Simulated assay, not measured.
Amino acid sequence: MAHSLTKYASLLDELAAAGYRFHPIRDYFAAPAKQPFVYLRHDVDRLPERAVTMAEAEAKGSIRATYYFRCDKHMRFPEAAMRRIADLGHETGFHYESLSRCKGDSDAALALFERELAACRSLVPVDTVAPHGAPLSAASNMDFSTGIGPERFALLGDATGIDFTDILYLTDTGGTFGSPYNLRDRVAGRELPGPIHPVRLAAHVIGQQETRLVLSCHPERWPSGMLALTEARARDSATNLAKRLLQHLRASDFRTRAR
């Protein structure tokens, strides 16, 4: 379920007190960090105003993160939020869903990716990109990431291109860290063995002597105020129910075709 912004701030405070340094994703590709480190990634799927609030809180602590922004089908981005977050000193990137929008057509997806990336760059600098999971779509944008070729688009890299064999990936996809409802935001490497509440996460990674981390959070899931928190939890519950139903339908379809 969703959690309050104060819990996110407390998580960062605990990690900072233990000596962890925070970096945006582009630093992984441009200037590898000294251990212990945390690369901070934020996917802004909706409610960009919550991303601004999170970015302002991080900036007050001299913390820089990466914020990946989606556009709608008309290539419109949340421009005001993007510019504000860039002005705060954070990295801004493109959160693409080209393959799912093109229903699995990789050629059309590549052309769409190029146009949307250019639209994003007309507003803010973009050095790295990251796919949107789109778990309810038949086509997975995760399958598209390896075919982009970052150098073709003057990119440092794709966030999914990080080598997770020795870096622990922590994501709140599905409602909490290590959620069983995370269907697509997975890496070929190290992840949590099961759900861990954010108030226990810092103690877990410190206790396990994890010194190399990527922490991925969706700002919409970390609001301020009880009303917003209740709304965010209700959305998570509805989304997870839809995922469970989709898993059941896909499994049933697979069994039918296998007969």
Rank of each mutant, 00 (worst) to 15 (best):
D72L: 10
M54H: 12
S62T: 14
D72Q: 11
E56G: 03
S145H: 05
S98E: 14
D45K: 12
V44E: 09
F153P: 03
A154W: 00
Y68I: 03
A111S: 14
D127Y: 01
C120P: 10
D43V: 15
A55H: 08
D143R: 06
A55N: 08
P78W: 00
F153D: 11
A130L: 01
F113P: 10
Y68C: 06
P131R: 05
T128S: 07
L117F: 09
A109D: 08
L112Q: 12
K60C: 09
P150T: 01
A118F: 06
P131Y: 07
E151R: 11
T128R: 12
V126G: 08
T92E: 04
P150F: 00
R121D: 03
A65T: 08
S106Y: 02
T128K: 11
A65I: 05
P48W: 14
L136H: 10
G61F: 06
T66Q: 09
R46F: 13
D143T: 01
P48R: 05
Y96N: 11
I85E: 01
L112R: 14
F77N: 09
T128W: 11
T66G: 13
C71L: 00
G61E: 08
A86P: 04
G61R: 15
L47D: 15
R76G: 03
A119S: 12
A138R: 04
L47E: 10
V124D: 03
M82Y: 02
A118M: 04
V124S: 03
S122E: 02
R41H: 11
A51Y: 12
R50C: 08
G61Y: 01
